[in-house]
Each structure stands twice: as C-alpha cells, then as structure tokens.
Nucleic acid binder design. Structure first.
Lengths: 170, 170
DNA sequence: ATTTAATTTCAATAATTATTGAAAATTCAA
DNA sequence: TTGAATTTTCAATAATTATTGAAATTAAAT
C-alpha cells in the first residue's frame, strides 16, 4: 500500500472539505478555512490562514466571522499578545449538531411556517382538484417536515452516545 | 383567521421551495419547476411550465432533465399526443429517499474515500503533533461519516412506516 | 494623546453559476 | 423521404455570489 505524505493529505482534505462546503450552502473558502483549522494542533492567526490558503485578509476576516456565527469556530487571545487566534470546533459530532441547529432554523422553520400559512387556503375561483392537490401535497410535506423537526431537535440536544447508540441500533 | 387565496398560496409555495433549492445544491428554477409539478393534479407539458414560471424553453428542458436524473420527476406520453408530459413524484417520503440516495453518492462517498486515502499518511518531514492531529481529526470524521452512511443506506431502502416509526420512537 | 498594530468593512471586481434563445437534432405523420 | 412539431444542446449573456484590497475602525502600547 502506497503511503501518502502530509502535505498531499492536507491538500486532499482541504479541497474535499471545501467542495463539500459549496453544496452545503457555505462558501468554498469558509469550508477550507475550517479544514485548515481542523488540521492545526494549535489555534491560528488570520495571517497564518491567509498564507496557508493564499487568500485575502478581508476574506479571512469575513469567513471567520461566519464560522463563528455558525458556532463551529472560536476566537481566542494569548496572554501578552495582541493578535487574535482562531480555533475550530474539533468534536465532529458537535460540529454536526451545530450545523443541524443552524439549518433547522434557517431552512426548516421558514418552510414549516409557509406550509402552516397555506393550510387555511380557500378559493372558489379555482377548481376543486387544484385545491385538493395543494391541500394534500402541502399537508404531506408538513407531516414529514414536522417529523424531521422533532428528530433534529432531539439530535441537537441529545447526549452524543445516547443518540448514536439509538441510531446505530435501528 | 384570515384565509389565503389559491394563487397567493401557490406563489408562496413555489417561492419557498425554490429558495430551499438554492441551499440544497440545486438551482432555484429546478426547485420551482418541481413545486409547480407538485401542485398540479395533472402532468404538465414543458410549454405550460414555461408559461407558469415565465422562463425559457431551454431552461425548462434542462431543469426537467436534472429532476429526472435526481429521480424526483418522470416523463409521460399521452395516447395519440406528440407532446411530452411531466409529473413530479408526489410521495414526499419517496422524494426524501431519492435525494438521500443521490447526495450520499455525490457527497458522502467521495468524502469517505478521501478520508480512507489519508489513513496511511506517514511523513517524517512534519511534526508529530501535526501528524497526530490529522490522524485524530480524520478518523473522527470517518467514524461519524460511516455511521451516517449506514443510517442513510437504511433510510434509502427501508419501508416507509417501519423507518418513521423507529425514528419517532427515539 | 499619539503612534502603531491589528481587524473590519464594503465598494469594486472577479469568478462562478444560471438562463436565454436560436440552431441542431429528434420524432412522428403523411 | 419530406415536412412540421417538438425537444435538446450549447455558446453567448445575465445574474448571482465570492473575493479583493484599500480606507476606516478599533484596540493596545508608548
């Protein structure tokens, strides 16, 4: 079996994680910065991240701000130093629950509100079959959506081992 | 309680579903076409969809093609008619399993392969702590990733009620 | 208070992604 | 086959999203 050197492995990790970011609604750079921080044993400065990824100061600053808003990175200060240091949340289960928490709020909640707001649609101007189809489809989506909501809430607040054990026993 | 008329409800549904599409890695239009088809009691022609959403023929053709590739829409023919008709998968649980199937293949699998390929990283040129951090982080992600993989596979192939019952009992 | 270091903001620009529309291809009927 | 109806493709363009970089801001040290 061919071994892989550190810098190739790091490169693959950063690229793959970045690519995933773009289909998960965060920018490639944000995900790449998270990847760099995940691999770093020590917290890093914005300068070091700039250097590592070859991107601008502004971009690093804004991306770090977003990562912190998503709850997957933190800012730290070292005694006697003026610079700020950044650290990624390394407990990947914790990262998953944070992401679930944010996405539930940003995506699922507005969808459920819309579906609720449609429940009392009534309109004689339009055919019965159209009205019925809307009622049927939207209530089906609402049902499944509520189940997802309930599962996500459990996932977000449950103790890690309890949840994974339950899931793995299915 | 104020009632909502059909066309407002339809508009809200299409907009919200479309907005969700963009954060789920499909284009707004693709998601909007799916929404229109979901609300339609009868299969629709490309012309009708064009008209309904005010978008170009080419866009409709390409978006429908993608929806079919994702396994959430089908093409149909009516006896004695030359035009093609399109229908959305209305069983929303089925839509969810199809999406899970595709995303597992497109996103999770490549990530797991990358993580496996990094397992045998070895490199004396770099500090022990960096190597160890990479080993630790990547194996943690791999563990959780494999659990997700296993859960997704169950979800994709399980019988609907069995799965939902299990999940709701957690 | 002033200087210096560090960070943030945001208008301008670049890069990416989505959409159009007309030409090419396909499909069916005569 | 030829011709009309329909669909697909894809280069050009538009729209959106990400990134830069320099000015403004903030914060610490002198």
């Amino acid at each position: 079996m061919m071994t892989v050197n550190y810098s190739d492995a790091k490169h693959r990790f950063i690229q793959q994680w970045g690519a995933l970011g773009t289909v998960w609604g965060i920018s490639r750079t944000m995900a790449q910065i998270q990847a760099v921080l995940l691999l770093s044993p020590e917290p890093m400065t914005a300068d070091e991240i700039m250097e590592e990824l070859g991107i601008s100061r502004g971009n690093v600053s804004m991306s770090l701000k977003s990562l912190i808003e998503w709850g997957v990175a933190t800012k730290e200060y070292k005694a006697g130093e003026r610079k700020e240091y950044f650290r990624a949340e390394k407990d990947i289960y914790r990262v998953a629950t944070q992401v679930a928490h944010e996405r539930r709020k940003r995506e699922l909640e507005p969808m459920l509100h819309m579906l609720e707001s449609i429940k009392d649609m009534d309109d004689q101007e339009v055919s019965k079959s159209k009205r019925e189809e809307m009622k049927k489809v939207s209530s089906n989506i609402l049902d499944l959506g509520k189940k997802c909501d309930s599962l996500l809430k459990k996932f977000i607040s449950a103790e890690k081992n309890w949840f994974l054990n339950k899931i793995m026993k299915l």
